[in-house]
Design a protein around this nucleic acid. Structure first.
Length: 883
RNA sequence: GCCGAAGUGGCGGAAUGGCAGACGCGGCUGACUCAAAAUCAGUUGCCCGCAAGGGCGUGGGGGUUCGAGUCCCCCCUUCGGCACCA
């Protein structure tokens, strides 16, 4: 072995060999279990990968490599989420073809990932913008269409004026586009939707059986937002209260509190509610129309920044409360949303805070229908709506019932038998808007025929190719650029043969990512998206790793598509990702400055005060260095703070980078990048190298693995004990995604090995010392293989092993060897540490107790006191309770 | 406002209700060196003490327990998510 660890040479050598021998190719060998490890497939950006991205790929790679060593067939593939807005916008900016650009960027990503030693099966690489791929994206669209799960409608959509496309509700964060932060507008236009709402119940209930972070499951649950209640019908009355004449129609409301029906003293419609037009009385029309117009104009901004003071106007109309026949006024107010429930509510101010505020403001009567012990007895005593609890009052036959779900059910039952309403479940989930009015996506495979209407493209005519064109900028009309390409648009109707127009919207990139994980099982199949055999072998995904930001986008959509495919009998599983883990972010200390007065306030609300602005590279010359303010920030090219895996591999080696990324903090924690940290990891690997370099002469190939403990010196047994404890711990830690403690355990083992070969009394003098050392050298090279694979293979070669750690077996844990021979008991007096005694492992609890009580410290400290009790924790501690 | 996660030395972090601070970074002392780097050895929570030893310590305050970083209640701070969902 060379004197110094030349990591550049070693890593290049092994990367070349892995590639040449196709070491990481997934093969379904019979008799072995299969393991599918996957990371969210990335959009290959022109910025390249940073060490931040590696925090996703590296630990996941370690987990996959470990599975391979544990005897699994491992599928660990990589591909490119190439379609979508980021690629298109960048291509427009650079005046390039997005197809070529993405290919080039993907090649760079591939190079970087290889540089990091990530064990991908590159023979399965996919690109969602390849026709061989989006052929099947379109095929799935048709599948959804045929199953009645895709429809086109003209309802108003979320429109991002900067991205110039409609967006799904999941892509709107706090009223802004999730990508560019632009305020979202409402725009009525024909758009394609997927009926994800039809799967709401299953998407909700199946979460229970997933090994996912609880926070992510919770987010999905809340996003789906299921609530049980009742729909109640309030007939609309004609003119004033006294009249019993009915005007047309009735107001349907959804309520989760049908038990408060007798307390409804007014109703509220959303300003956009269709009935507003018909029920408003002539005298109120002017006010109502003004309000509707105002709420349309300001709704998005207001609903975010306004203090949520309730506003509204009376329509002049009344509705009849079906439970007691009372006429109650109908208002409109923007605190009622058209997008949820029926867009109309019955207002019970006594028991709903929003209704309470509204009633107080507009002087509408409040009626209690629950009496809480020592609570208010009249509305005048109230300062806020009454919470849960109490017994029903003012509610006819229901008076006296307690506030619980049985009472709610009793009301629902009554509504149903009397025909006033019925039980109903409502969800917040909306159907998924899939249309994008942009060029760079999979064309929606539909044809519009004047005679036949909407006609799907026949399956044998797939894929509908995205034309390669020079100009693909948005048209500014709200239509896709494809609409301006007659050669694309004009076609024949597959049904009647007449002239027809192609659908010109493309699909959201989230369509591609809703099924790509299936394609990896069989990526080059031309006849089907993946063969049933390949799917059966590899799917579902055993381990899925990616950022938490997709909790309610990709991760919800992919679950939905999987369930649809399951229902179509294309898959035999209903959940695509069995285990999910989110990696933490990587932050780096970044120079910034105090904001100028213009930046500080801006259009942000007072809650998000900006007190720091990144100093972009081009601005750094303008601010004196002693005025720079350093903060931990995310890496991005525009902030000029990116650390690339390339430079780290060059300076410290890919293995050092890998070990550092795993050691620095628990996997899911945000971490702070430091150079001294990676230096520590590098130092550790060099230390391992020197250990092998200096111990190689003593290495005995084919050391016998069965040597009686009595034939080993105490030092030998100590080393073996540490070794086998480490074998167990590292395995458990990798499985538990606790990579930082796995690295720490390996460091401890290496420290122990150093002590063994060069400490006092060393080098192990017993006759089996070399055997013990050989076992440790052999096993350590395997144990570090998932984390530092290049070094591991090199060390194994130095030890005389052919082949690759990837295909070698994980060391066998010997429980007997790992057992401690001596135990240090802690002696406590009243819970405070007073002494420690080391006793043989065979000591009984009773013996330990006696030894503890009679120890010098215990005797002197308990003098004059009565020992009331002695607690012995087996093999750990003796606590003497005295006083 | 609601929901979730977290708060431990100078720093990153470790710890099935049982020795707080594993492991690493940084610091200090020493060895090697003409010197430096690298490496190695020792040391390193804080306070008092020459020492033996003692006291205090896991965001704050209560509680349960023989024993609490860990469990329970209240509060504070930070980060993430949702935000008039009837």
């Amino acid at each position: 072995m060379s004197d110094q660890y030349d990591f550049r040479e070693v890593e290049a050598k092994w990367q070349a060999r892995w590639e040449k021998d196709q070491v990481h190719r997934a093969q379904a060998e019979a008799g072995k279990s299969n393991f599918y490890g996957l990371e969210f497939f990335p959009y290959p950006s022109g910025d390249g990968l940073s060490v931040g991205h590696f925090r996703n790929y590296v630990p996941s790679d370690a987990a996959c490599r470990y599975r391979s060593m544990r005897g699994y067939n491992v599928l660990h593939p990589m591909g490119w989420d190439a379609f979508g807005l980021p690629a298109e916008r960048e291509a427009i900016r650079k005046q390039r073809s997005p197809r070529e650009m993405v290919r080039e960027y993907a090649a760079n990503y591939r190079r970087q990932l290889k540089l990091g030693g990530i064990a991908y099966d590159w023979s399965r690489e996919i690109n969602s913008s390849d026709p061989e791929f989006y052929h099947w994206t379109q095929w799935f669209f048709l599948l959804l269409y045929k199953r009645g799960l895709a429809y086109r409608t003209n309802q108003s959509a979320n429109w991002c004026p900067s991205c110039e496309t409609g967006l799904a509700r999941e892509e709107v964060k706090e009223g802004r586009c999730w990508r560019c932060g632009t305020l979202i507008e409402k725009k009525p236009m024909p758009q394609w939707f997927f009926k994800i709402t039809e799967y709401a119940d299953r998407l909700l209930s199946d979460l229970d059986r997933l090994d996912w972070p609880e926070s992510t499951k919770k987010m999905q649950r809340e996003w789906i937002g299921r609530s049980e209640g009742a729909e109640v019908v309030f007939p609309i009355m004609g003119e004033p209260v006294s009249s019993e004449s009915m005007s047309e129609g009735a107001i349907h409301v959804f309520t989760t509190r049908p038990d408060t029906l007798f307390g409804a003293t007014f109703m509220v419609l959303a300003p956009e509610h269709p009935l507003v037009e018909t029920i408003t009385t002539a005298s109120d029309r002017a006010d109502v129309e003004a309000y509707v117009e105002q709420s349309q104009r300001t709704s998005e901004i207001d609903r975010l920044s306004a203090e949520r003071t309730k506003t509204g106007v009376f329509t002049g109309a009344y509705a009849r409360n079906p439970v007691n026949g009372e006429a109650i006024p109908v208002w409109i107010a923007d605190y009622v949303l058209m997008g949820y429930g029926t867009g109309a509510i019955m207002a019970v101010p006594a028991h709903d805070q929003r209704d309470f505020e509204f009633a107080r403001k507009y002087d509408i009567p409040i009626r209690l229908v629950y009496q809480i012990k020592d609570g208010p007895r009249t509305p005048d005593e109230m300062t806020e709506a009454l919470p849960e609890g109490g017994v029903v009052i003012n509610s006819g036959p229901f008076n006296g019932l307690p506030n619980n779900s049985d009472t709610v059910h009793a009301f629902v039952k009554w509504l149903e038998t009397s025909g006033m309403g019925k039980g109903m479940v409502m969800t917040r989930l909306r159907d998924w808007l899939i249309s994008r009015q942009r060029y760079w996506g999979a064309p929606i495979p539909m044809i519009h025929c004047e005679r036949c209407g909407e006609v799907p493209v026949p399956e044998d005519k797939l894929p509908v190719l995205l034309p390669d064109v020079q100009h693909y900028e948005p048209t500014g009309t709200g239509e896709s650029p494809l609409a301006a390409m007659p050669e694309f648009v004009n076609t024949r109707c597959p049904q009647c043969g007449g002239s027809a127009r192609r659908e010109t919207d493309t699909m959201s990139g989230f369509a591609c990512s809703s099924w790509y994980f299936l394609r990896f099982a069989d990526p080059h199949n031309d006849n089907v998206f993946a063969s049933p055999e390949a799917l059966k072998t590899w799917l579902p995904v055993d381990l899925y790793v990616g950022g938490a930001e997709h909790a309610v986008m990709h991760l919800l959509y992919a679950r939905f598509w999987t369930k649809v495919m399951y229902d179509a009998r294309l898959l035999d599983f209903e959940e695509p990702f069995l285990t999910l883990r989110h990696q933490g972010m990587v932050l780096i200390e970044t120079p910034g400055r105090r904001p100028t007065s213009g930046e500080a306030g801006g259009e942000e609300s007072e809650e998000t005060v900006i007190d720091w602005v990144v100093l972009k590279p081009e601005e750094r010359g303008k601010v004196p260095e002693d005025e720079w303010v350093w903060r931990w920030a995310k890496m991005s090219k525009s902030s000029g703070n990116v650390i690339t895996p390339d430079e780290m591999a060059e300076q410290y080696g890919a293995d050092s980078l890998r070990v550092y990324e795993m050691f620095v903090a628990p996997f899911e924690e945000t971490v702070q990048w430091t150079d001294s940290g990676i230096q520590g990891a590098s130092r550790f690997l060099h230390r391992v190298w020197r250990l092998y370099r200096d111990s190689l002469v003593r290495f005995t190939p084919g050391w016998p693995d069965e040597i009686a403990a009595s034939d080993l010196s105490p030092a030998d047994r100590k080393l073996r004990r540490k070794l086998h404890q480490t074998i167990q711990k590292v395995g458990q830690d990798i499985e538990g995604f606790s990579f930082n403690t796995a690295v720490a355990a390996l460091m401890e083992l290496v420290n122990e090995m150093y002590a063994y070969v060069q400490g006092p009394g060393a080098p192990g003098s017993g006759r089996n010392a070399d055997v013990t050392l050989s076992e440790a050298l052999d096993d350590l090279a395997l144990l570090i293989a998932p984390l530092a694979p290049h070094l591991a293979d090199e060390l194994r070669e130095q030890l005389g092993h052919a082949g690759y750690a990837y295909h070698a077996s994980w060391p066998v844990f010997d429980a007997a060897a790992a057992v401690d021979e001596e135990i240090t008991y802690v002696i406590q007096l009243n819970g405070k540490l007073i002494d420690r005694i080391t006793l043989p492992a065979s000591t009984t609890d009773e013996e330990a107790k006696e030894m503890a009580i009679s120890s010098d410290r215990a005797v002197s400290l308990t003098q004059g006191k009565t020992i009331r009790k002695v607690i012995v924790v087996p093999r750990k501690l003796v606590n003497i309770v005295a006083g």
